[in-house]
Design a protein around this nucleic acid. Structure first.
Lengths: 164, 164
DNA sequence: TATTGTTATACTCTATAACTATA
DNA sequence: TATAGTTATAGAGTATAACAATA
């Protein structure tokens, strides 16, 4: 079952070739490669994910996004500050309830998001390079199914750290 | 292509449903669930990975393992200290070259490793729960193939952080 | 002089809790 | 008083560089 474990003297050693282990290995690799790519755009993966989420759901409050992402509200501040300072994101004080600030992506932000799109396509190609079309489709279908089974939501990354 | 993206106002938004993205989502989830489980054994994922690696390749030096894991030697010290203090791992000064210390898993360490094995099996079941046998086999085969294509080695986790 | 392991230090990222302003 | 956002602070985890022992 093990690809190249050679002579393994440890009989009690846990199985390293499980799907769960491979998933975490490949996931970490994919996240690292993506981090390298977005770094070229001067973004961290959490920043990229947030930008994307705000674009998909404009106008929401910081608290709402924090809840959705499973992160403390205090963390949003720094992320948004960075994006706002670069003119990619904008806070707008809600006129009805001036405690809330609704978030929106600027035109510059949308332009960068388009770049991010191309980058994601290239990244996907890099990760699955070497698979033929059938394998690629099979893999994608299985991952989608698994993501649904585990209740993963499209724009929300578990942990929201290390990757988008 | 998107499972439940609802009305997505951002045309320029990058694709979130790529295999690479799903891989990183599911990988992060798998890593988190594994971390929860090994925490019950009072281990961090890096500690578990190191213990496993030493069991698979006993007698190697800290430098050799650090190189293999892609981590600075200084980091090995703390990890090994923790495992050695609990009697799971042992440093033995090399008699030929007393700069080197070769690492070995103790009997207690092997016992814990056996527990870790059972835990890994349960973890794997949890991650892939809901898939039928055919899907499970397909997924495993594809992940193994992808791991080989990307040059991932059995006991070496990319980043060696957050997961084993 | 070069190398192994160690220590000291600093940096990054994240979470917790206290604070303000609005309600 | 309760809530949204912010600030201050502390903690975990990691990397870099200096150090001591051995070769």
């Amino acid at each position: 079952m093990e690809p190249a474990a050679a002579a393994c003297p440890a009989d009690g050693a846990p199985p390293e070739g499980t799907s769960a282990y491979l998933l975490s290995q490949l996931g970490a690799l994919s996240a690292r490669l993506f981090a390298d790519r977005v770094a070229a755009l001067d973004l961290t993966p959490p920043q990229a994910g947030l930008l994307r989420l705000v674009a998909a759901q404009p106008g929401r409050s910081q608290q709402a996004l924090a809840t959705q992402l499973g992160t403390p509200p205090s963390r949003m501040v720094g992320l948004i500050d960075g994006l706002e300072a670069r003119g990619l994101l904008a806070r707008r004080r809600n006129t009805d309830d001036r405690r809330l600030s609704s978030l929106h992506v600027t035109a510059d932000g949308m332009a960068l998001l388009a770049e991010l799109g191309g980058l994601a396509v290239a990244h996907d190609g890099e990760v699955s390079a070497g698979l033929d079309d059938t394998e690629r489709e099979q893999l994608h279908a299985l991952l989608v199914r698994l993501a649904e089974l585990r209740g993963l939501r499209p724009g929300v990354h578990p942990g929201f750290r290390g990757s988008c």
